[in-house]
């Protein structure tokens, strides 16, 4: 992990972040945050709501910029959004392009990159198959269930061939059953693509199910990474396993202390 320092997929160095218009030091959402994620890792970020998890993703996506410090990807500065860093959003309705079919949605990235129609369709088909949407290529988003829409988002993001995939609580708006199915699948998809995944959630069970490492964020404002856990369990993981339960309990304890602020008093 230390060797990856220079060529890390994602590298935060003493990052502070305040949204424009409230750029006073005391109102930093993130402060003195450092984090390095090596290429190919599945990193999960958990923390109490309002701790700036989504803000951290925006800094990587390039839709927001740090006020202090620097965020780099493969040793490069981030100047704005580009296809190197794909994003899967929590919102089920918002991010899909309603006027495009599933196939056209998934082929959007290749289209922007100038791929011809045949290449676009072939690429789209590969990722539609990967997320299990075969047979739904010519449907419009309004004809799909919430879980299927999130599958389209995942396929669309991967089809643009990003090096880093950012997932912002992608299954939080889905029903429990669909969520469980998709949690299993996202671990498989990560294995198949070998890309760097950074997954944000407030569901600890989900974090332990997915992450090679789990970063726990401290309570905001001035949030940073409080603790990083290595999860040394093989995939696919079994949430009925006693070691799984033990890790979940430990993390839950950490986050509860974080949410109630007890750490600050210790």
């Amino acid at each position: 992990m230390t060797a990856a320092r220079d060529t890390a997929a994602i590298d935060f160095r003493d990052v502070g972040m305040a949204y424009p218009g409230q750029a006073k030091g005391s109102e930093l959402i993130l402060a003195e945050l450092s984090l390095s994620i090596p290429e190919g890792e599945f990193f999960v970020l958990v923390g109490p709501s309002g701790s700036g998890k989504s803000t951290l993703l925006k800094l990587i996506a390039g839709t927001a910029f740090p006020t202090e410090g620097e965020v780099k990807t493969f040793d490069q500065d981030i100047h704005g959004p580009d296809r190197q860093r794909g994003m899967v959003f929590q919102s089920v309705e918002g991010p899909l392009f309603d006027w495009l079919t599933v196939e056209e949605n998934v082929g959007f990235g290749p289209k922007m990159a100038g791929a011809d129609g045949a290449t676009r369709r072939a690429t789209a088909q590969r990722f539609i198959d990967m997320v299990g949407l075969k047979g739904h290529e010519h449907k419009y988003p309004s004809e799909l269930s919430g879980g299927m829409k999130q599958r389209v988002q995942i396929a669309r993001t991967l089809a643009a061939d990003p090096k880093v995939v950012l997932l912002d609580e992608p299954f939080a708006a889905l029903d429990a059953l669909t969520r469980r199915v998709l949690q299993r699948e996202i671990a498989r998809i990560w294995t198949e693509t070998g890309r760097t995944f950074l997954y944000v959630t407030h569901d600890i069970r989900e974090a332990v199910l997915l992450g090679q490492r789990i970063g726990v964020m401290s309570r905001g404002p001035r949030a940073s990474i409080r603790n990083i856990y290595d999860i040394d369990l093989p995939y696919p993981r079994d949430d009925l396993d006693s070691r799984f339960a033990e890790i979940v309990r430990k993390l839950e304890g950490d986050i509860e202390r974080e949410a109630s602020g007890q750490w600050d008093e210790m």
């Binding site: 996506a61 959004p81 580009d82 988002q153 643009a160």
Partner: peptide
Amino acid sequence: EKIDAARCLG
């Protein structure tokens, strides 16, 4: 999100 999604797709 629609705008951000398009930008992140290149």
